[in-house]
Amino acid sequence: MLNQAEELYSSLLRDETTPADASCSEILIKLETATEKKNPALAKTSKPSQ
């Protein structure tokens, strides 16, 4: 999972992926889910405010 996140990050740095596309990526969704399971309070602070 970390390798996929690293690839996504690198893709963003090279402007091969837009931030909007990256935010919908499967790997970020998986990481968010894992974070919520481990620490619900941390997951709430990582979401952008609306």
Rank of each mutant, 00 (worst) to 15 (best):
I29T: 09
L12Y: 04
K30Y: 05
E6F: 03
A5W: 02
T17V: 15
P48S: 03
A41C: 01
S10I: 04
T18S: 15
S46W: 07
I29M: 06
K47F: 05
S23M: 13
T33L: 13
K30P: 00
S23I: 07
K37C: 04
L12I: 07
E26W: 10
P19Y: 04
R14K: 13
S10G: 06
L31N: 01
R14H: 09
E32C: 00
S46M: 15
K37N: 04
K38F: 13
L13M: 13
S10C: 05
K37H: 01
K38M: 15
P48I: 07
A41L: 15
N3R: 06
E6N: 07
A43H: 11
P40I: 14
A34H: 05
T17W: 10
P40M: 14
E7S: 06
T33I: 07
I29D: 12
K30N: 14
Q50R: 05
P40D: 13
S46Y: 11
M1Y: 05
K47S: 12
S23P: 01
L13P: 00
L28K: 02
S25K: 02
I27H: 02
S46C: 05
I27L: 04
Y9E: 07
N39P: 00
S23T: 04
T17Y: 04
A5M: 08
N3D: 15
P19K: 08
Q50G: 05
S11L: 07
S11H: 04
I27P: 00
E26D: 12
M1N: 13
D15L: 15
L13C: 09
A5L: 13
E32G: 06
L31D: 07
S49F: 12
T17N: 01
A34L: 13
R14A: 15
E32Q: 09
N3W: 10
L28T: 01
K47C: 02
S23G: 05
L28C: 02
Q50H: 03
R14D: 09
K38C: 14
E7L: 06
N39I: 07
S10H: 04
T18N: 04
P40Q: 14
K37P: 00
K44G: 03
K47N: 04
